[in-house]
Nucleic acid binder design. Structure first.
Lengths: 207, 207
DNA sequence: GTCTATAGCGGGATAGAC
DNA sequence: GTCTATCCCGCTATAGAC
C-alpha cells in the first residue's frame, strides 16, 4: 500500500497539488535529481498532467524556485529595510528567519545549490533586490550606530555575513548537526528555537 | 578549439587525471548533474576508461567524496582535539579552514548537498568521527573555560555551531555574496582573508 | 482536464579491436 | 591500457482517446 502525503487529499486545485508536490521533490532532490514521475505520484496525478499545466520540467522548476524565493525574501527585506536601529533588527531578523526555516527546512540548501548549478539565475531573481539599495541602507545604518557609539567599529559586510551565517547555516547542515550533537528531530527544533535568543545575545555581546 | 584545464597536460597517471577531473565536475554539478562524458573530456581521455579504472559512476563518485572528506577533516580534528585553550583554538581553526576552503571552494557545498541527497552516506563517513569523542572533548574544554572564568557561560554546542557557521557558510554562499557586496573574485578572496581575524575577534569579544 | 500509450533521446555501461 | 562502436534503460515529452 502506498502512503500519500496530504498533497493528494483535500480540495486543492490540481495546479496547487502539483506545485506542492514539486516543491517537496525539487527541494529534496534538486533539479537534476528530481523525477517527473515522482512529482506526479506525490501529487496523486498522472505524469502527462504536469506537462499540461507547466509545459516542461524547466518551467515547473522555475515556478517552484520563484515561489520559494518570494516566500523567503519579503520578510527579510522588511526587517533590513526598516528604520529601526541595528541592535533591534538582529533579534527581529532571527525570529522571522528561524520561523520561516522551520516551515521550509530545505529551502536554503535548495536555493544555494541551484544558484551554483545555474549562476545566471542569480541575476534573474536577485537583480532587482541587489539594485534596490538594501545593502547600502544596511551599511549606512551600521555606520551611524558606530558614530553614535552604540556599537564598536566593525565592517558592516562582515557583520551582515555573520548574522546570516549563524541563522541560515545550521539549517543547511542540520543532518550533520543532528548526527553530531546528537539531536532527535524534536531536539533539533528546540535547538533552533533556542538560537533565536542565543544568537541575538551572541551578536549583541560582540558589538 | 577546446580549452583544457591542466588535468590533461603533465605526467600524472591516468587515475590521477580522472580523479582530478571527476572532483572538478562532481563538485560543481553534484552526483546527478555530472556527466561521465564531461569528466572524460575534462581528463582528456575516453569515457570507457572511466569504467576501466572505477567500475561505475557511483564508485567514482564515492572515491571523489572520500578524497574531499579526508582532505577536509584531519586539520579540523587536529585543532579541536588538541589541548590548547578554547580562545586559542578559534583563530587556529579559522586559519586552517579558510586556507583549505580557498583551495577547495566547492567542497562544503558539495558535501552538504550530497549528505542530504543520500543521508546514509553520513553514517559511513562520519560515524567513526562521531564516536571518536571529539564533540565531548570540545564540550568539556568549554565547560572548564567557563568554570575558570575565562569565558562567559554559553552552551558549547551553540558556540561550536556559531564558529563553524561563520567560517563555512560564506563559502557556500559565495556567489550570492559576490553579487550583493559586490565583490570581484579577488575582492572576495581578500574578504575571506580578512575573516580570519575579523571572525576571531567577533567570537572572542562575545565570550 | 485527465488518462494511457509511446515516441525519442541522452547517457551509463559493455564488447571487442588494437 | 586505451580506443571506437554500440547496446539498452530511464526519463522527458507528446499524441490522442475519453
Amino acid at each position: 500500500m502506498i502512503e500519500r502525503s496530504k498533497s493528494t487529499d483535500n480540495q486543492m486545485t490540481t495546479e496547487e497539488k502539483i506545485m506542492n508536490a514539486a516543491s517537496l521533490v525539487f527541494m529534496k532532490k534538486g533539479m537534476d535529481g528530481a523525477r517527473m514521475q515522482e512529482i506526479a505520484d506525490e501529487a496523486g496525478i498522472n505524469k502527462a498532467l504536469l506537462h499540461y499545466y507547466f509545459r516542461n520540467k524547466e518551467k515547473l522548476f522555475e515556478a517552484v524556485f520563484k515561489r520559494a524565493f518570494d516566500k523567503l525574501m519579503p520578510p527579510l527585506l522588511e526587517v533590513f529595510n526598516s528604520d529601526i536601529p541595528i541592535l533591534e533588527k538582529i533579534p527581529r531578523f532571527l525570529n522571522l528567519h528561524v520561523t520561516f526555516l522551520r516551515e521550509n527546512p530545505n529551502a536554503p540548501q535548495f536555493i544555494l545549490f541551484e544558484i551554483q548549478r545555474n549562476p545566471q539565475m542569480i541575476m534573474e531573481f536577485f537583480a532587482p533586490l541587489i539594485h534596490s539599495g538594501v545593502i547600502d541602507q544596511f551599511k549606512e545604518g551600521v555606520q551611524k550606530s558606530i558614530e553614535k557609539g552604540e556599537i564598536r567599529p566593525i565592517d558592516p559586510i562582515h557583520l551582515l555575513v555573520n548574522i546570516i551565517s549563524m541563522s541560515v547555516f545550521p539549517m543547511v547542515a542540520r543532518n550533520l548537526i543532528m548526527e553530531f550533537a546528537p539531536f532527535s528531530p524534536t531536539e533539533f527544533d528546540q535547538f533552533m528555537e533556542e538560537r533565536k535568543t542565543s544568537v541575538s545575545q551572541f551578536i549583541i555581546k560582540s558589538l
